[in-house]
Nucleic acid binder design. Structure first.
Length: 497
RNA sequence: GGGCCGUUAGCUCAGCUGGUAGAGCACCGGACUUUUAAUCCGUUGGUCGUUGGUUCGAAUCCAACACGGCCCA
């Protein structure tokens, strides 16, 4: 840090202390201390032990962590160390450590990282603590921590300086621990179900698999632009053509759109594909998966989110898209959803813009999204999305206007999107041509024609069903968060000014 | 992109209709050998987001900009 003009006196004071240590040849950053346990382990093992038994045991421990509190009372002090598992209190006495070591301890600051060894005992107030016989400074901290009582609440600082948020906010640690446990449980589930975890390109010559605007980047040696993927879908299906039959990928996709409480430019998606299955099989899998995940991560099938409860233990409701529209628009009848002009009129009456080129399918989707989706409590599967808005999905054999597709809605929000895959290469090529036409008509979210994907389908994609689950949204649901930024360690932010 | 709100000490926040900046915690000095928001005494700490305007005088009023939050598209 060359620019010291932005440093306040608190930091300057800590730098002086560090300089003093260096001058005295006292290590400020030693790396030879070893701990033998964690705070939580100590509480688990000894927390229930009676005082006399604890004293008789005379258990000695070595721990290390960040000093979060300190109360100096003359010749004895208390402090709390925080490690990755939690906190444990230290009792530090001059008579145990010696004059010099105790004086050194009093010079340390909150936020310093400290190693301590000593025997366990319980204080008069009943807190399990370490009676220290050894105390070492392991890392000098130069910046003051936020206040111990109110902590760090400013959302901007919490997102920009996540390290600080994680140090002081237990809730933040809880959310990201939950996220990791969820990902781990997801992988176990799919591994045990015979799926292979794979990695496909994030930099793609043709962005595909979703309707979204991509980020563009440039490869210097190739002298050409590449796109950050908006979905892994088309590559995963190529792998099923290749005979991998059951594949899944959990990683980032990128969409070049605004930032909000529900959208981050990069986000994590799970996509999985299973040969010899259809969308009904995937609805069953999704129910089983979510039931399993909530149980693993929360220990219950009842999910509390923003004041409501969602039941993942019971069978999920199923409703077609048209049924959902009719439920929330009692003035409409099935016939209103069967003809473009009548549906367009119903949309206009509700203030929904209808484009001249929009077919009945787009209008139905708009009606659903504008009048029904947000009111669906769920978990509920919405099925039968129109072919027009599902360019990669297989049409229903009995009603080819619709596709074998579903979305899972919870709390009015889309959590998953799955369908029987379109594996007829000639139909898929026709759909790509339609999409390409929409692009040239000005829809910059419409898909590109992907000739290699068609070539893959021409070798033969077995009947397959595939699904995508937005992991960030799932974490939001299970962690009871209202903003996607609260479940991303480093959410997208404008540069600091 | 639009609307509303916010930005004051390291952190959490006061600061009215304009009169020259405050508290708690942290820090520093002192007392204190079972405290836990430790306590008690005494200090220290600021480009009031940035730039411009109005005014004798701006943290305060006005405008633009930056960053953030919430809502809407």
């Amino acid at each position: 840090m060359s620019d010291e003009t932005d440093e306040n006196k608190l930091i300057a004071r800590r730098r002086e202390k560090l300089a003093g240590l260096r001058e005295a040849d006292a290590p400020a950053f030693p790396n030879d201390f070893r701990r033998d346990t964690l705070a939580a382990t100590i509480h688990e093992r000894y927390g229930g032990m009676a005082d006399e038994a604890l004293e008789a045991a005379g258990a000695r421990v070595c721990i290390a962590g960040r000093m979060m509190t300190r109360r100096v009372m003359g010749k004895a002090s208390f402090a709390h160390l925080q490690d990755r598992s939690g906190q444990i209190q230290l009792h530090v006495r001059r008579d145990d450590l010696g004059e010099a070591a105790y004086r050194a301890f009093k010079e340390w600051d909150l936020g310093d990282i400290v190693g301590a060894c000593g025997t366990l005992f319980r204080t008069r107030k009943g807190e399990l603590s370490v009676q220290c016989d050894t105390l070492r400074l392991l890392t000098k901290s130069l910046r003051p921590l936020p206040e111990k009582w109110h902590g760090l609440t400013d959302p901007e600082t919490r997102y920009r300086q996540r390290y600080l948020d994680l140090i002081v906010n237990e809730e933040s640690r809880r959310v990201f621990t939950l996220r990791t446990r969820l990902l781990s449980a997801l992988r176990r589930y799919f591994d045990e179900a015979g799926f292979m975890e794979v990695e496909t390109p994030m930099m793609q010559p043709i962005p595909g698999g979703a309707a979204a605007r991509p980020f563009v980047t440039h490869h210097n040696a190739l002298g050409r632009d590449l796109y950050l993927r908006i979905a892994p879908e088309l590559y995963l299906k190529r792998l099923v053509v290749g005979g991998l039959e059951r594949v899944y990928e959990i990683n980032r996709s990128f969409r070049n759109e605004g930032i909000s409480t529900r959208h981050n430019p990069e986000f994590t998606m799970l996509e999985f594909y299973q040969a010899y299955a259809d969308y009904r099989d995937l609805m069953a899998l999704t129910e089983s998966l979510l039931r399993h995940l909530t149980q693993e991560v929360l220990g219950t099938g009842q999910v509390h989110w923003q004041g409501s409860t969602y039941d993942f233990a019971s069978p999920f409701e199923r409703l077609s898209l048209n049924e959902a529209i009719l439920r929330y628009n009692p003035d409409l009848a099935a016939a209103d959803l069967a003809e473009r002009e009548r549906a367009a009129e119903a949309a206009r009456v509700r203030g929904i813009e209808v484009g001249a080129g929009d077919g009945l399918g787009k209008i139905l989707l708009a009606l659903f999204e504008e009048t029904a989706e947000a009111q669906l409590h769920g978990p509920v599967f919405i099925t039968d999305y129109p072919r027009e808005v599902s360019p990669l999905a297989r049409p229903r054999d009995d009603a080819p206007f619709f596709t074998e597709r579903f979305e899972l809605i919870v709390g009015g929000r889309e959590i998953a999107n799955g369908f029987s895959e379109l594996n007829d290469p000639e139909d898929q090529a026709a759909r790509f041509r339609e999409q390409a036409q929409e692009r040239s008509d000005g829809d910059d979210e419409a898909m590109h024609y992907d000739a290699d994907f068609i070539r893959a389908l021409e070798y033969g994609l077995p009947p397959t069903a595939g699904e995508g689950i937005g992991i960030d949204r799932l974490v939001m649901l299970l962690a009871d968060c209202d903003s996607i930024r609260d479940v991303l360690l480093f959410p997208a932010m404008r540069p600091e000014s």
